[in-house]
Amino acid sequence: MVHDRVIELENIGLISYKKAWEYQQKLVQERLKNPLLSDKLLLVEHPPVYTLGTGSTLNNLKFDLKSFSGELYRTERGGEVTFHCLGQIVVYPILNLHYYKQDLHWYLRQLEEVVIQLLYQYNIKSYRIKGLTGVWIGNAKIAAIGIKVKRWITMHGFALNVDCNLSGFKQIIPCGIQDKFVTKMTHYDPNINIIEVKEKLVETFAKVFCISII
């Protein structure tokens, strides 16, 4: 599959979850009004924050909401509860799937493929688990995926644990799966540099989706 699509990269860096969420909503609305607008690829990192998908149950939170002083948002993405923090690359593709393939399962598998191919470049072997969304190493998840698609315009995306403090995940049952853990790239190679990972991620995304990125 070859596309002549060009995606605009925005390597935003550190931004609050709320601001990034509102920005995505703005970009989606603009593209619903004008489908000829270019696609976007947003790369961000978030300060510590918990997010819940549409069908998330509060039973997967291990803390009492009444005494919780951190940030937590219920969003329109699919999937269960997850945690974002510094050292984790969060990728928000704003794509018009009319120009690719109007198939959500295809899109989810493509996002997983980006992570799998990226990790392979670091000699980290990862894989899918049938029936579960995301990317795994052994019994541990290294990348969580949760998307929202409105009239085939995508938002939300995936989070890849590069060199982050995983302790925040201990306060939740990540993605609602009891018998699994979370991991990060620096567990397998302590010399991994997050700036380089972002560069390789963009290149891999372009390759997997057969597009150009500017």
Rank of each mutant, 00 (worst) to 15 (best):
M1F: 08
M1Q: 06
V2I: 13
V2A: 13
V6I: 13
E8A: 12
E10C: 14
L14H: 07
S16L: 04
Y17S: 00
Y17K: 00
E22F: 00
K26I: 11
Q29T: 11
E30A: 15
N34K: 11
K40M: 09
V44K: 09
P48R: 10
Y50I: 10
G53Y: 05
T54D: 06
G55H: 15
N59L: 06
K62I: 01
D64L: 02
S69C: 12
E76Q: 10
G78A: 01
F83W: 14
H84L: 04
G87T: 11
I89E: 00
Y92W: 03
P93T: 06
P93D: 06
I94L: 02
N96E: 02
L97I: 01
L97P: 00
Y99C: 02
Y100A: 04
D103V: 00
L111Q: 00
V115W: 02
V115E: 02
Q121E: 06
K125Q: 12
Y127K: 13
Y127P: 05
K130I: 08
K130C: 10
G131D: 05
T133F: 07
G134E: 08
I137P: 02
I137D: 03
I137L: 03
N139Q: 05
A140I: 11
K141L: 01
I142G: 07
I142C: 05
A143G: 06
K150E: 07
R151I: 01
I153L: 01
I153F: 00
A159S: 07
V162S: 04
V162D: 03
D163E: 09
C164P: 06
L166T: 13
L166Q: 09
S167K: 14
G168P: 02
I172Y: 14
G176A: 09
F181L: 12
V182R: 06
V182W: 15
T183D: 05
M185I: 13
H187E: 09
H187P: 08
Y188E: 05
P190N: 07
I194W: 07
I194T: 12
I195M: 12
I195D: 15
L201M: 13
T204C: 12
F205D: 07
F209P: 03
I211M: 14
I211T: 15
S212F: 14
S212I: 14
I213L: 02
